[in-house]
Design a protein around this nucleic acid. Structure first.
Lengths: 212, 212
DNA sequence: TATCGCCTCCCATCAAGATGTGATAACGGC
DNA sequence: GCCGTTATCACATCTTGATGGGAGGCGATA
């Protein structure tokens, strides 16, 4: 089995060297590059096509350009690379910023070298590893406290909203619900007051990202 | 240390019994309930306040009400419960449905009993465990392969669209971009032609589910 | 240079939506 | 019975949006 081409971008010399020693000494890996800054790494990627790691261990906090900021550039130069973020702190916004930018794994530097090694193997197999506490933050993102606040709207009002959101005009809505145009208007007026909005656009947006 | 109160809802007798034997025999856990259907489980929760597991192992596919469908009801009866989904197939939509409903962990039934045990412990500590392949699906949700399909719109047109989608009126858009109201109108006109739509509503909808 | 795409602006018109005032009626709870 | 909520309808007014036409400036490129 071919060793996994690995790159490390980490400014802390102690962590970098320990990763280097541990992973570099493992025949499963081939350490193709290690850098202390994003700028250095990007420059190398640009200048030397042969530097093409399949997995990158990337410190999230770097002097100069941060790890997160650099992800898009890295992805542009090497689209297939799998990025594992290494982090000292578990800040939700950083986590999501990194994942949105294209990182596929995120783990704390406090975990053991063995865990990091396993994460690399997992990622290379097409999986993803996240520290449990980080994974929890991620899942909480999906269910941010089941705010089943399905709007303070009455059933009738909700019907009107559904029609509007589905692209119907006031007139079409009136026809569909068998009420008059003015009644639709009145409902809309109330809805706007209740939701504290003042345009169809806002209504549509609110409904759409409430139900998704 | 007090044992972790555990419940299992799983219709497959083989899996249920093996979980029961393995986890029930571990002094770290106390198996407080095991059911074969969501209906049974909900009824018990409703009738007996004392049945209050802190972690639930829940099969995603059950006869009658599915695991996913039942999550909201469970959460309503026992808000603090941590739910670990057990699944045979790794379908993205099911995964997200479960997470959105409030599950905090998601793993394949193919993993070892030891892994399941560790997942329970992890979850009880406030973490979350996900099978690597499932975790990968989750992270891909955040960065859906930067399909920079930024539509057939010119940069300027895209700016106008962004403003409109963010709830600005034509007039506000004009002010923000420092151009005249008529110019905004002209752009919108062109955009509508290009995208083959004819209302602000459609524009908003299209932009919204393009970027997500 | 001439043409083309993009951005800018203006005019005009009609349809649609936003907002206010006011009114009637059914229903449930106190 | 009175009150609050919800739903219904009407009329009036003003703003916004949709769509048509025309036109000048600018940069790229054939």
């Amino acid at each position: 089995m071919k060793p996994i081409a690995l790159a490390i971008v980490e400014d802390d010399p102690i962590i970098r060297e320990s990763l280097r020693t541990f992973l570099g000494g493992d025949p499963q890996f081939e350490l193709v590059y290690s850098a202390v800054s994003m700028e250095d790494f990007l420059q190398t990627l640009q200048q030397d096509e042969r530097v093409s790691p399949s997995v990158l261990l990337l410190d999230i906090q770097l002097p100069g350009q941060s790890g997160i900021e650099g992800i898009p550039s890295i992805k542009k130069l090497r689209p297939g690379i799998d990025i594992i973020m290494l982090t000292t702190f578990e800040e939700s916004d950083k986590i999501f910023a990194a994942l949105c930018a294209g990182a596929c794994s995120y783990l704390s530097k406090r975990v053991s070298l063995i865990t990091i090694r396993d994460a690399v193997l997992t990622v290379h197999r097409g999986g993803s590893y996240m520290s449990p506490s980080i994974a929890r933050k991620v899942v909480e993102h999906f269910a941010p406290i089941p705010k089943k606040e399905d709007g303070p709207l009455t059933p009738r009002q909700q019907e009107i909203v559904d029609c509007i959101v589905n692209g119907l005009s006031y007139k079409m809505t009136a026809d569909k619900l068998g009420i008059s145009l003015d009644t639709v208007r009145t409902h809309i007026k109330h809805i706007y007051h209740v939701l504290e909005i003042n345009s169809k656009g806002e209504l549509i947006r609110r409904s759409l990202d409430k139900n998704k």
